[in-house]
Write a protein that binds this DNA or RNA. Sequence first.
DNA 1: ATACATTTAATGTTATAACATCTATTCATA
DNA 2: TATGAATAGATGTTATAACATTAAATGTAT
Lengths: 152, 152
Amino acid sequence: MSIETDIKQKKFRSAYQRLALNLIYTSNWLEYKQLEFFKEYDITSQQYNVLRILRGQQLNPIKVSDITERMLDKNSNTSRLVDKLLAKNLAKRSSCPNDRRAVDVLITEEGLKLLEELDPHVDEWENRFNVISIEEADQINAMLDKLREADH
Amino acid sequence: MSIETDIKQKKFRSAYQRLALNLIYTSNWLEYKQLEFFKEYDITSQQYNVLRILRGQQLNPIKVSDITERMLDKNSNTSRLVDKLLAKNLAKRSSCPNDRRAVDVLITEEGLKLLEELDPHVDEWENRFNVISIEEADQINAMLDKLREADH
DNA sequence: ATACATTTAATGTTATAACATCTATTCATA
DNA sequence: TATGAATAGATGTTATAACATTAAATGTAT
């Protein structure tokens, strides 16, 4: 369904205005879909994101501030996000030996198991993107990067 | 800056996964920019969105449920959003004559003035999108619509 | 006309986001 | 090495999002 129909707006001032609204609308849609999806596994997409980052570290511990750097939402309160994972035994914390201000975070066996359980479903979930070709996806990616580039 | 650099991820499983992350990341970036922008005028982008919808009504009153339909975030609590506008004298409420359950919302003179003050700045703000061509913007728009189409 | 379902908006509650502040540690430099 | 700035993370506060419930009005079917 076109963004025009979705938000019942017949015309836009420009293709750029439509794009801005469409980006936010589509991202909201995507986040809502993810919310629904992850709800079954009792985690949020943010928590999943952190788990993926932790697994990506190849089991090396990673500092809280490094997690933040890798997150989609840089303003997110990583400290409290890690708390949630800790409470669910999906991650563990230990103080960092070379910098006593920092805190090392590591994924647990249970966290790894959850990700492994999720992997096939996430793959399947991403199949919805197949309606556009890889070339098209690459194209959008490049243009989105370009958009943010103009940030000065 | 590429999404790879922004979230410090060297490789993605697929162009689709990169697209999903890029969409959410770019939308977060956009929403943050809007937040910063509207902060000067002491409104949120959601409140601005509602004001635009109200003005779009050509001064005809519109029901709360109709506002919700036109919003980017369909889950938003429109009732309380309208409360905020009311408190700032940017909108007014009156009960709907033909359906006493419904509530008519109308933009005030003050609301219209605020929008008029904002208009040129919003236009200027949207200029950042000029880094891509209108054709490119249309292309992304079409592909985003197509993405959501696959929602079943 | 009555009973029951549906619609509309408001409100209550809980979780999270946004933002500021605080404490401990480390860094820089005089 | 003593001092102030900078950094890391935790925590407090306020606003908003997410979700459920409620109350009033309307629609529907018998």
